[in-house]
């Protein structure tokens, strides 16, 4: 039996190790090796930090990198602020049928490809779009208004795309908050605000952490929304990676960019976990 258990363990470990090894760990090591080499001739390379130096000395790259990080943090914050009251409503105010159908409605946009969602916003926001026509019909503006291709449109799209990943973990954590705890807060003379601050938010912290991490990751790594909704000045870091790999065929620099993005996302995720006092295992399950 012990031998059988050992055999079972080995058989079950194999797929895990193959998957993680061949598709996650080794490819990332290889990507790192490519990022620290420099082409010195046809098919000849040497190890050098040149790609990283390019990254740090070229203002366009560094500025785009910082901008992408800040905009993603902004997107995460906006998503949290918009989604929190709705999640509270679904978890604590709505009851029975209404509760489950509202929750289901929140999931619907997720069943649809991100491309379709972005396309929807393009139809709404563009010059010949719904909002522009509506404003003209109301008589508020004289001619067509272009609302697409700027940072606001891009953030609207990013928030929309990732809303679900904020609302669902928030609803799940807040559902476990007992009504009587909130009632006790009121009995003890708490105001709406103090109860929100002292009881609801601390209880929802695991949900806030996991929602924020996922939304941040999705925004940072997004390519579609900035490309389709953003303007000329809203260059996203993933677009730089794509152009180095596919358009310029400079894989060395592209791999260095990829690594910088990976480092940035790891640092920010780690910081979010520290600030909210969570661990990766707890937030992901």
């Amino acid at each position: 039996m012990r031998a059988g258990a050992k055999l079972g363990l080995i058989l079950l470990l194999m797929p895990l190790l193959l998957w993680l090894g061949l598709l996650i760990i080794v490819p990332h090591i290889d990507m790192f090796l490519v990022s620290i080499r420099e082409r010195i001739g046809v098919g000849r390379y040497q190890i050098s930090p040149a790609n990283y130096l390019t990254f740090f000395t070229e203002p366009l790259y560094l500025v785009t990198f910082m901008r992408t990080a800040l905009m993603s943090i902004l997107t995460t914050a906006i998503t949290l602020v918009i989604g929190f009251p709705v999640a509270f409503y679904i978890a604590k105010v709505a009851k029975g049928r209404l509760q489950s159908s509202l929750f289901l409605l929140c999931l619907v946009p997720f069943w649809v490809s991100e491309l379709v969602r972005t396309f929807g916003w393009m139809i709404l926001l563009r010059e010949t779009g719904i909002f522009s026509s509506f404003l003209q019909w109301l008589g508020l503006v004289d001619g067509p208004v272009e609302m697409l291709y700027n940072d606001v449109a891009m953030i609207v799209g990013l928030v929309y795309t990732s809303m679900l990943f904020m609302v669902v973990p928030l609803v799940t954590t807040m559902e476990s908050l007992d009504d009587s705890v909130i009632e006790a807060g009121y009995d003890l003379g708490g105001s709406n605000l103090s109860i929100l601050r002292e009881i609801v938010i601390p209880h929802a912290m695991p949900g806030i952490a996991s929602g924020s991490i996922v939304v941040f990751m999705l925004s940072l790594g997004n390519y579609l929304t900035p490309t389709m909704l953003g303007g000329k000045d809203s260059l996203w870091f993933t677009e730089l990676i794509y152009s180095q790999f596919i358009v310029r065929f400079n894989w060395e620099l592209g791999a260095a960019f990829g690594f910088m993005l990976l480092i940035l996302s790891s640092i920010i995720v780690w910081a979010m976990l520290k600030v909210t006092g969570q661990t990766l295992e707890k937030t992901m399950t």
């Binding site: 990332h28 993933t238 791999a255 990829g258």
Partner: peptide, 10 residues
């Protein structure tokens, strides 16, 4: 927690 595009290029 790895951005999809990084997973792709690696």
């Amino acid at each position: 927690v790895i951005p999809g595009i990084v997973l792709g290029i690696s």
